[in-house]
Structures are given as C-alpha cells and as structure tokens.
Amino acid sequence: MHLKLPNKIIDSLRRMLPAFIVATIVTFTVGIYYAILNSPPDYLQGDSMRIMYVHVPAAWLALSSYSFLALSCIAWFIFRNPIFNLFAKSIAPIGATFTLIALVTGSIWGKPTWGTWWAWDARLTSMLILFFLYIAYIMTWQTITNKDLAAKISAALGIIGFINIPIIKFSVDWWNTLHQPATISKLSAPSIHISMLTPLMLMTFAYVLFLITLFLIRYKIEILDQKILRVSS
C-alpha cells in the first residue's frame, strides 16, 4: 500500500519552502517587536512576564509535536506504511528542541517570579519526562541497526509515551503544583489582556511557521536517507 496523497501534499509544501522561511522570519520580527516593545509589562511580574511569549508557544508546540509523533506511530502500527515512520522521525528532534526551549525559558522565568530555577512539581517533572521520551525515541532509531526491529520498538515507545500528554496538560488541575493553571484554555472570562494576547498569538503563529519549515527540511533529509540506504544495500 502506498499513500499518494500525503506525499503529494508534502511535495507541494516543499516547493513553498522559501516562502515558509520568509514568512517565519517576518512573523518572528513582528512578534518579537510586539513582545518586547509594543506591549505593557504585567501589573505583578513586570517585564519578566515577557518570557511567556517564548515559553508558552514552545510548550504548546512541544505537546502538539509529540501528539503528531504518537499518532504517526499508531498509523504505522495499523497500516505498516513506512511513510508514517518518516513523519515521526522528522518531528522528533524538532519536538525535543521545543521541549528544551520550554524547560530552559521556564527555568529562567521561575527564578525571578517563584524564586527558584526548578521545582519537582507535576507540571515541570512531566515536561522533563516528555524531553526524555523524545530523546529515547530518537536513540532507538540510532542504536538499533535492524530497521524492522527499530520501527517496532520506536513505535511502541512513541505510543506508550502518548499517555504523558494529557498528564502534562491536566497536571496543574489534578494536583497542587507550583506552576499556575492554563491561561488560554479557560472558557470563563479572559485572564489575559488583549494587549498581551496579541504578541502571544503572533509568537505562536511564528513558532508554527518555524515548525512547518523545520519539518519540511527534516522530512526531505529522511527521504534522502532512505534513498541512500536503498542504493547502498
């Protein structure tokens, strides 16, 4: 079985790669302008709250990337089409990087607001586990030389790790944590002012474009890797 449609979509997206790169740079410029210069400080936290504009989108995309990875693993398990492994392999290092960005910026934010770089609360710990899950997934492919075996083990790992995503999301509601609950997903009154929501949304948009750009590049590399393997074997 061969999936023609995803390949077709990715081919046409790849032709738009230069446009994605330009769009990423432009939105990041506008987003950072709003985040640093054209938005007010927080009434309580002052300027340190601006770290949110890099921290929150990174965390959102770290979770979304893992969901995409896990869904690809499930699709591979059911349909056994190697294209799904390429999806998962392409997104893994990107997701790991976003997780690391969220962890590091969170730590830098934590020091001036909470008074500590790190706390072993449920949100922070489950986020660290997410980082290890990404690393484990990447390492499975790199250390197991038998590709069929690597596919099976990495898919199992990716699927089992999926359980961590709702744990991260709801950790702040289920348990007492130092980390505050979500600002955006609340259905009640908005708890962030529009002048701060604008830079946050711009930065999120920039992050998404950046993610797509990186994914297209990574996917191309994975395809080339496969071709080299086929020729050399």
Binding site: P40, P41, Y43, G115, Q180, T183, S191, M196
Partner: peptide, 17 residues
C-alpha cells in the same frame, strides 16, 4: 527553609488594574 511565590494565570497591564 525556602519561600516560593506562586503566581496565578492572570496577566494584566498595570493601567488596566
């Protein structure tokens, strides 16, 4: 031994407050 400040999920400019 240690005191940590916990902040909430509300972000507002000082003027709005």
């Amino acid at each position: 031994i240690k005191v940590l400040a916990k902040h909430d999920e509300n972000y507002m400019p000082p003027e709005v407050i």
